[in-house]
Design a binder for these strands. Sequence first.
DNA 1: TTGTATGCGTTATCAA
DNA 2: TTGATAACGCATACAA
Lengths: 348, 348
Amino acid sequence: MAEPRRRAARETTGATRQVTMDDVAREAGVSVATVSNALLGRGRMLDSTRTRVLGIAARMNYTVNQNARNLRTARAGAIGVHLPENKSGLAYYMDFCFGVVDVAEEHSLAVTLIPGGRPEVALRAQVDGFVLVDPPVGDVVVEAILTTGKAVVSGDGTPPGLPEPSGLVASDHRAGIRAVLEHLTERGARRVALISAGRSARWSADVEDAYLEWSSEHDREPIVVGGSRLVDAATVESLTDSLLDGPKPDAIVAVPMDAAVGVVSVARDRGLDVGSELLVAGYTDSPSLSVSIPPITAVDAAPREFGRACARMLVRQLADADRPVPGEVESFPIAFVERASTRGARVE
Amino acid sequence: MAEPRRRAARETTGATRQVTMDDVAREAGVSVATVSNALLGRGRMLDSTRTRVLGIAARMNYTVNQNARNLRTARAGAIGVHLPENKSGLAYYMDFCFGVVDVAEEHSLAVTLIPGGRPEVALRAQVDGFVLVDPPVGDVVVEAILTTGKAVVSGDGTPPGLPEPSGLVASDHRAGIRAVLEHLTERGARRVALISAGRSARWSADVEDAYLEWSSEHDREPIVVGGSRLVDAATVESLTDSLLDGPKPDAIVAVPMDAAVGVVSVARDRGLDVGSELLVAGYTDSPSLSVSIPPITAVDAAPREFGRACARMLVRQLADADRPVPGEVESFPIAFVERASTRGARVE
DNA sequence: TTGTATGCGTTATCAA
DNA sequence: TTGATAACGCATACAA
């Protein structure tokens, strides 16, 4: 009764109706339950039945209706990703995001971008869990996300004073900056200055701390200027000037995104040969560092792989149902891209 | 019978059950149908009933279960966004993406990122329509998307030889480059060279064409070098050298993303004062242009607003059901950011 | 080993 | 003006 009516209704629209389990079941001469079980690899059934059903489903171009499946299994079928508003880091975060998409896709999960500014959007988002990256102090959306009670995996530490995330994937920024410092030393640098990105994000605080530790370990006088994650040209210029006007460092590590580009400009302007007279390294790699002249050495935070790692942890937690999640922590290694700006060949 | 069982099952898990229409209906003493109608603003009912139901729903923190709604209304409840793989444009595309998210959110639509490389993912994506941006020639995923038969709005033109998208929002790049050229002329430039991004994307071909037109209109000899959207430092360097070694231009417009940074480096290296002796402009704005020294003038393509415009058109098309969509076209204006690299004060 | 039947939360079609 | 009730496509407990 209902059958012909439905058919008729569909026929009128031009859209080709999606193939459903019913269709597959009818074609295969089995019940929907069997189709479902075959597809999910559940239940016991003749191997011949299973392969036959699978074959027919594939041939008919069947795809599961995620909305129906999610409704039935009481899941949202999506994970939310929240990125910092920080304009100058967008390329990095975009890559991160696609890393999340990579593994979400493998698990038939959609990725929903959670915009900044309106916490209520995050609270109502129909997602099974969240992935954060570089959650900034004072971000209201981050706070909302952490109070939902849903699973949250954070790429790098969350601000203090908020509920802990259920998972943490921490880039080893301390190791990253140390690698840069070792490299510079090896290339002849004796006085390495740091243009810091401040302490407002966990990672940049870590970088600063590790720099200070390293300096004292190696009996070097630390030289730190700056302290903001976002810098404009004028700021970079004056910071660099202040460094080069004082007792001149022979290497500068510029942590704020793309700041190293400005440092190089100023140095060259002063007639310094960047790469030999003055070594310059950025921290987080970005396309403009490789396009600068000379190309600038930087740490490669491997954002896409980082996103993958975060998403993998979240997916694992979601699968592990309501097992008491114990603030899982995982460390993520970061690599190093050597370019001409630290080629060295410096002689004292 | 089923009722107590469900309750019991839920109680055992710690998760607080989502409030459903049933709950609201029970609380309000009406039927689910009435709740649904009240929420959707449909059907005729006493205003008093409607406001009462709405109030109760709000108080109970009711949110519609999108999966159930989508299942019932036979929609996917999401729109897919596909971005070019082009690494160096990521910041721009990210912004674009958030523009799409902005308007999707207003319409309770999720945004699904469609990764590159695997067309089958695009074909099976459960989305009601797609938004593309700068679709590159030869992108297999773009091709797949355009052949799904679903609504597709493209931000800037799609490659020839493929099905036309149902909608097109076109940035007026011809006007953009002309604005740059007028500006440079006004600041004293007489010989303006172009480092082109080639013809592989519609927009960059438009830019090149408009430059040539403008040159002939103003009786200027066109000077065009380059032709690739992605450039590394060495390429930029050699292109700039070739320009500055010949009959010297007094202004250079560098179209590939961030290439202007390299141009400035080379010019300064040669002792040229960028901003007076040589004017330099980028095309698409990016953070590294504003951080360069001197900061570089560029066209501001307003990516977020651009994304909004595309998404708005798509949402409109989706609402207009199966009305014959007539390859809608809309023009999108682009703005202009003047910075020190073209300050001028040049005297012949 | 397979099929039947039920419900997930909504919307839509009736009837009241 | 409102209320029962039947789908939507799928997963699953239970019967066969």
